[in-house]
Design a protein around this nucleic acid. Structure first.
Lengths: 206, 206
DNA sequence: ATTCGCGTCAACTATCCGGTTGACCTCCCG
DNA sequence: CGGGAGGTCAACCGGATAGTTGACGCGAAT
């Protein structure tokens, strides 16, 4: 068994453990057992628990997240597929939560890398705006964040989702109804013919 | 100093501690110090750490959360004020996150009480639908959850908000731009005159 | 065959932390 | 006075856990 294999197995085990119980709750012995090695190797490769945690975070956060905006005209369809994608990345979502609870909104690991991902989604939004599919009054990055919120919240606070809607996000019924609701919202992103409130449509910021 | 005073001081200290570092990360000694008493009293009143945690959760979760829907016609304005309200309830948001990370979407404390809160928001939505302000095709509860998502996400994953938008939710610039974006969305909840996609407008579920 | 990289194994230390114990203090009430 | 309720104080126990140590195993390359 090569060194790389073992390192990777440790990393995978640690990812599972940290996603499940966080840094404080994680047990080095448990990670070793899950990785099928002994904990001395962990200290050998990663120094200490914190080093292991940072490596895991950097690794996971450098992975491309689901893009909330696609090139296609049907935003709702794209959104639905990306939701399913996110559904399979529960560890990513959970690690985001641990990160938020630990560090607030301060600097985070792999910041540059992650910022780059955002660029693509914002560009896709701008393209849709240029083509008249989306009201150009929307600030692309904030609209991306809005879509991200709608995509991620069922996985981030599933108990709240269940309390409010009555269905658990893991049930097909939830998915169906949620996609319908978000779909209705997305179908309304186009330019508005000034109806009730006549406000300016200048962009709020860059 | 009466018994009640001390109990409450312990509860407040514990709320702060649990919101900050969760159940696993909380230190009984730290809670005692913060409450200005000795930890024996904590065991006296609450049995053990878990009992204290459950009491705290029940207490906090029985508080009325911000209502995402108001009676007023201007949803955007209402939303903005409720966001500011939520901004001051960071402990509530954080405890929701700890709850989610601990228990998934299973049963939660004070479930009945919390469900009751949802009823009011859904009712307000239905009223707005009856008055024609909101497209009756929306499922009220799912729309409430969508609004909740948009309201809470900046506080739940502030680091993601900053990565995507470039501004931290604690900055006034973020608030301004976010309110603008959500406001634009909310202004589009009305019935649509069949434009591009002619789909049915039947309600997806109850 | 010797050596070296990779990994194993078991035992150990030090510390932290939840929870306990028992003695004592202080004020009020009868 | 006596006694009990509410609270204090410091020390302690026991188990869990991060991190260490040193001896050993084993397969492959020189």
């Amino acid at each position: 068994m090569s060194e790389l294999d073992t390192r990777i197995r440790i990393l995978e085990a640690a990812t599972t453990e940290f996603a499940a119980v966080g840094l404080a709750g994680a047990r080095v012995d448990r990670i070793a057992q899950l990785a099928g090695c002994n904990k001395q190797l962990i200290y050998h490769y990663f120094g200490d628990k914190n080093g292991l945690f940072e490596t895991v975070m950097t690794e996971v956060m450098s992975d491309r997240p689901p893009e909330v905006f696609g090139n296609r005209a049907d935003f709702a369809d794209h959104f639905a597929r990306k939701c399913d994608e996110l559904d399979k990345k529960r560890t990513w979502t959970r690690l985001l939560m641990w990160e938020a609870l630990a560090g607030g909104d301060g600097p985070v690991v792999a910041e540059e890398r992650r910022r780059a991902f955002v660029g693509h989604a914002a560009k896709a939004c701008e393209r849709a705006q240029a083509e008249g599919q989306i009201d150009s009054g929307f600030s692309p990055r904030y609209l991306v964040f809005a879509l991200f919120s709608l995509m991620a919240m069922p996985f981030v606070l599933p108990q709240v989702a269940r309390l409010i809607t009555g269905a658990s996000p893991s049930e097909p019924a939830f998915r169906k109804a949620w996609m319908d609701t978000v779909g209705r919202l997305l179908r309304r992103l186009g330019p508005m013919e000034a109806t009730e409130s006549a406000e300016d449509s200048s962009q709020p910021d860059g």
